[in-house]
Amino acid sequence: MLNDINYELYPPRHFKSLSPENTAKSRKHPAMSTSQQTLSPHGNLATLATGPLLQLDGVRCGYREAGEWREILRGVDLIVGVGEQLALVGLSGSGKSTLLHLLGGLDVPSAGTIAFDGADLAGLGEPARSLWRRRHVGFIYQFFNLIPTLSVLENVLLPLELNGIGERAGRETALGLLAEVGLADRAGSYPDRLSGGEQQRVAIVRALVHQPQLVLADEPTGNLDFATGEKVLDLLDRLVRALGRTLILVTHSPEVARRADRVIRLVDGRLSLA
């Protein structure tokens, strides 16, 4: 089914319709603007200096369990450039998911800084981090995490709605993207009617529909068979590259890691080049 996708369309024409010139509404919503604009430390729009997208300095993270402090990350330093594709590997329990959650602003480090476009994420505070996440981050999970009470189309429209793009304005974009992953005819279905591969394709569309700067994927093929996984990865790879987005992907699989521009390994809470 994936072979039916018209790859010639990249960069997808549907994204253009949401550029500031075309959507009056989007002017108020930086998420829909071009990649030249991003969030300053104060949450205002600023022109992006040609620096790294992400910069981690001495990031430490742990939690208290049964009265004892368990450190997971013990000083992670990392620089990720705009448009880079990074594979994050490591043994189970090495802290890959923890790092991914820190990068997505779901958690804050106990020490060190994570700067996105030069702005410290921890300094933003929880409400601003939620707003930042909805504008700049797309998440893809091993277990898809689609909203069971929403149809496929509604699942895709949700990030747009959270960013202030109404259902009508976002519909064309969402349907176009669903068509590109071969699921235009399933737009009205509920997630539990879809196969694992189909659900993950919807999750990819949902993670990209609002054009985030950063796409974070936690073992996106971990729950799929090899062939389906390959097709999903092809899709993710092409969409992300075509859009010039940054992708950080957690995986156990050497085959998957090999696709990335750079592979980094977490060992004992510290990073090493693989």
Binding site: G104, L106, S130, L131, R134, I147, L158, L162
Partner: peptide
């Protein structure tokens, strides 16, 4: 999931 997607 809604929180991860950015709902405040």
């Amino acid at each position: 999931t809604l929180r991860i997607l950015g709902a405040t």
